[in-house]
Amino acid sequence: MHRDRMKASGRIQKIRIIIQLCSAVLCNGYLAGLKRGRLFTGKTKAFCVPVLNCYSCPAALGACPIGSLQAVLGSSSGRFPFYVLGTLMLFGVLLGRLVCGFLCPFGLIQELLAKIPVKKISVPKKADRLLRYLKYIVLAVFVILLPSFFRNGLGASLPWFCKYICPAGTLEGGIPLMLLDPGLRDLAGPLFWWKVLLLAVILAGAVFIPRFFCRYMCPLGAFYSLFSRFSLVRMTADRRTCISCGRCGEVCPMGIDPVHQISGAECILCGRCKDVCPASSISYDLPLHAHDPKYRSSSEAGHGASPG
């Protein structure tokens, strides 16, 4: 009986890949920029997109929220980033890490890389737990603290994350600009090659460890994860109908156990677990369904109950 439900697998994934592709195109739709080698200068760049998407990419139509955050924090007029932070909060409370799962182009790239058929590395639990904190350090230190406080006498600051770390910036901004503008190649120094190396490591990592950057390094994912517990779009796993088959954990790109960690700080709400669950225990907890008795929050499904 339950086996029939497995045939419905992939439904969410089919919708999701389309949304991911649309998002990538919407964020980077200025193809004329790639042809002419110039940035888009229209007014839409005053708006932050919800995802990690470098605004120095010739095709970018919007502003990167993490880049904008560093820019405002680091500006010599020392303002508090109300506009950028407010935008990020709204994205966080409305969507949370659904942004990661459905909208982020860099996440999509990592997922495509993970499709390469090599044996995936299973990160040992202790190392994995420790490394998950790294992204919060990246957020706190490189996105917030260093741009805010590390200035010279003229008040000049730097976007530390953009300059030294961001692989999306290298992939979408640095490399295309290098390719499109021959004169720029003279300027490529050790910093550029460091960033290319880091990008290569991250992309290679994503082949063996799905969503490698999202798990351990992404400051935007770290920020949104703070909203996971109460974002409007959530998912639940009904532990009373769960049969503990473990299939959800096998397919989870973030390497978590959906039964216990679904909709938590590490969950990107991609729905792969839902697609493979033979007992249909997993579902999206959308605001409209809040009063539908079919959908129960995981806290009601019995915290103390042992699975199966």
Partner: peptide, 17 residues
């Protein structure tokens, strides 16, 4: 980091990477 950044005010405003 905060202590370091306080000491970095050189006259010429040169940012040493």
């Amino acid at each position: 980091l905060i202590l370091c950044s306080c000491g970095k005010n050189e006259d010429r405003g040169k940012y040493e990477g």
